[in-house]
Nucleic acid binder design. Structure first.
Lengths: 226, 226
DNA sequence: CGACCATTTGATATGGATCAAGCGATGTGG
DNA sequence: CCACATCGCTTGATCCATATCAAATGGTCG
């Protein structure tokens, strides 16, 4: 089912932690000054499930997917992370999913211990760590709702979600493959492909190239979204 | 599909907050001394989706389900909460699901503001709030993995989860109906019923009464769990 | 006892998976 | 720079797991 390079990228982030003023309020901005930016090529693993979570990550450019495998090889993608998104934050010491670059990406890598230490001193940072986990939870709950819907509803839900992530644009590129979409939605690529075609035929969307989506009728899409 | 009493329980928790020593370490125990225990009858709503999250809750006895409804009435149960479990904690101000008593239950109700205030003073409490959210996240991720499996795998997964929650006992009562199980697993009650029957026929479990489960072969069950 | 609700069982329908092939774009080696 | 191999996506034919529709059974409570 999957054909992916499992080449392990073994280079490590160079530690560039600087002394950080105590009144930092935004985790995102404090992250910007801690750690280093690393490039990851398409399909390269960023971390593996059950590995020690020594770092957290912020997408600078590109896209990342997190996923879990079932024993028989079925893959379930948990989330896609776009530029600006932070991922890999765990409460416990281990990653609960694997992470890979969907496309060539630049990722800010920050030592977890540095952030946790910062949170110990700065209540606001601690609060933001909590909020990030809460946001992830919200996303997982939305994902659950997606997975109990029909194929058409799942695809529509996915496209609307991607549109939102693109600031509500009604035209955008999909950075991930049909297989990625299928594994995110719990469908097969054939079903994704056929469902997209249906949406095109109904005039709700246009797909000038397979990776480019144009939302033609939000109304129709929202109605199909249950 | 659903037949449930939507009687709103309008009584409010009496505030019984006492002054709490600053060195409290366990959120669970601090909760035990804040707020009041309230009874909720079977199928009575504890809170509704989008309501202001003024309280959080700890199950003293009985069982609670949280759920969301799709516009057409399909219900997805997010979690079941058993005695000792805390639920209803939100990072933001609103509940993201509704909550109902599955059976007659006693619930400890705590003012959220009291806990948040406590967390502002006590770093350890703040950390526990974060951990609770992380635990919820973990549960939601496990739920996602359940929802992409076959019907048999879902039912087996559910039974193993319930066994774990009963301290690993290989014999336990199900406090919830087949409809609740179906709505948790994203299946119909007929499929749940038939799948359970299959497991009985294969000798993996016994079901002396519909609400009582005996795990006969963990090995077989684990093998079926993918 | 009788009514009601939960669960099971049976018959049939169907959405999405599977199996198989074709097509178009992309990149690579000669 | 072309030719061919490869990869990602689509399309078609068929199958099957689960839903749906319908009815019977069982359990519980007034």
């Amino acid at each position: 089912m999957l054909t992916q390079t499992i080449t392990r990228n073994s280079s490590q982030a160079v530690r560039v932690t600087r002394s950080v003023p105590a009144n930092i309020v935004s985790l995102g901005s404090s992250i910007a000054m801690m750690g280093a930016v690393m490039p990851f090529a398409r399909n390269v693993e960023i971390y593996g499930e059950n590995e020690t979570a020594d770092y957290l990550y912020k997408v600078v450019s590109g896209v990342v997917r997190t996923y879990k495998l079932l024993s028989d090889g079925r893959r379930q993608i948990g989330s896609f992370y776009l530029p600006g998104d932070i991922f890999g934050l765990e409460f416990g010491g281990e990653h609960t999913s694997s992470a890979e670059a969907v496309a060539d990406s630049k990722i800010h890598v920050i030592k977890r211990s540095a952030v946790v230490a910062l949170a110990g001193r700065d209540k606001e940072i601690a609060r933001q760590l909590w909020r990030m986990t809460a946001t992830e939870l919200q996303g997982a709950q939305d994902h659950i709702m997606l997975l109990v819907k029909t194929a058409k509803e799942r695809v529509v839900g996915f496209l609307l979600e991607m549109a939102e992530r693109n600031l509500g644009a009604s035209e955008f590129d999909l950075p991930m493959s049909r297989q990625d979409i299928a594994d995110y939605l719990g469908l097969t690529i054939e079903t994704v492909s056929r469902t997209v075609k249906q949406l095109v035929n109904s005039g709700a969307i246009a797909v000038p190239t397979s990776r480019h989506i144009v939302l033609r009728s939000r109304g129709a899409l929202n109605r199909m979204n249950a």
